[in-house]
């Protein structure tokens, strides 16, 4: 079935899920990260901004949260509040996990 060998191809890449942690200050600036530098930093910045907003809005609703665990089907985001900023862990899930 040599014909089928050409079904495999090299070329465009699929973006992998981010894995690792990042620390952000209260303004949303990333001050430390263990996530691969090939992952788009703009996406990480957007995620950080959303996490900080969630902590901030929770305070406005009298919730004062210290940690958040957001479970998506393929990824878990864990965030701990850190003096207005946050440390955020991004952990991809696999079928087995």
């Amino acid at each position: 079935m040599g014909l089928l060998n050409f079904l495999s191809k090299a070329g465009a890449e699929v973006l992998r899920l981010p894995s690792g942690s990042l620390t952000v200050d209260r303004q949303g600036n990333i001050i430390a990260s263990t996530i691969s530098s090939s992952y788009p930093s703009a996406v990480l910045k957007d995620v950080s901004a959303d996490v900080l907003k969630l902590f901030r809005e929770a305070r406005a609703a009298q919730l004062s949260l210290t940690e958040l665990h957001i479970h998506f089907a393929s990824l878990q985001i864990t965030a701990r509040e850190l003096r207005g900023g946050a440390i955020i862990f991004l952990t991809p899930k696999t079928v087995a996990s």
């Binding site: 406005a60 479970h71 998506f72 089907a73």
Partner: peptide, 29 residues
């Protein structure tokens, strides 16, 4: 109001990272 903010934020994050649908959120104070 906070639930709406949470919904919107999770929707945005899921789209940006391609993390799939949201299963649940747990939080502690």
């Amino acid at each position: 109001k906070w639930m709406r903010v949470l919904e919107e934020a999770c929707h945005r994050m899921s789209d940006r990272i391609e993390a799939g649908p949201l299963s649940n959120v747990q939080a502690a104070g």
